[in-house]
Amino acid sequence: MIAKLLGQTIFFFKEAPRNLPSIFKQLSDIGIGTLPIAALMAFFVGMVLALQTGTQLALYGTQEVIGAIVGLSMVKELGPVMTALLVAGRVGSSMAAEIGAMKVYEEIDALKTLEIDPVRYLAMPRMLACLLAVPALVIFSIIIGVLGGGLISSVTPAINVPLSVYFENLVRAIGYEEIFKGLLKAVVFGGIVAHVGCYVGFKTSGGARGIGQATTRAVVLAFILIMVADYFLTRLTL
């Protein structure tokens, strides 16, 4: 069932031009709606990463490499994973609740009687929007996280790495390959969030209680699948 839904969703990608308003609405909800929280989270993650790692490196006098460590961590791991978890909590749950409510209150049946395929009308725009919005959010989070790390590295006396040195090491360490690997993860995680949200929503039954359970289930399932996918993607792209 979950694979069938994925296949149908991908099949309906060709219908995207006629669903542009819906896709833009989802992009706005997912992208613009998540942007401030993602920025705040990335900024603090970058700062904590620099603070923890920088003070330890300083014990051995190797704190100059802090820029490379923060950059690689944000690009390859923390940026994609933290953003995907945030989107799963904020957007995946909302997708499951919205589609679940539509299922419970017969709106999905109404779509079918109007000869409108619910997968094309509901799942495809959400999936496409997630595939586009999550990588964009990840790029944004990486930039903010790196800036946060640079700020802490330069102003913390125990680390004391100038911004120029921080960014010099960062640029040296990160190539197109690292960025590609990070964005590949972002695309896969975005797909997982949308697919799980829609699948759980379509499977919802049992009134308000069922909708509540669907919301929780969507978040938990997306979190687990993101972590599992992260492991395998890391293995594959090592």
Binding site: M102, Y105, E106, E107, D109, A110, T113
Partner: peptide
């Protein structure tokens, strides 16, 4: 076409 018990408006 069907008119549902819950109206099922979007």
């Amino acid at each position: 076409s069907m008119v549902f018990q819950t109206s099922a408006l979007f």
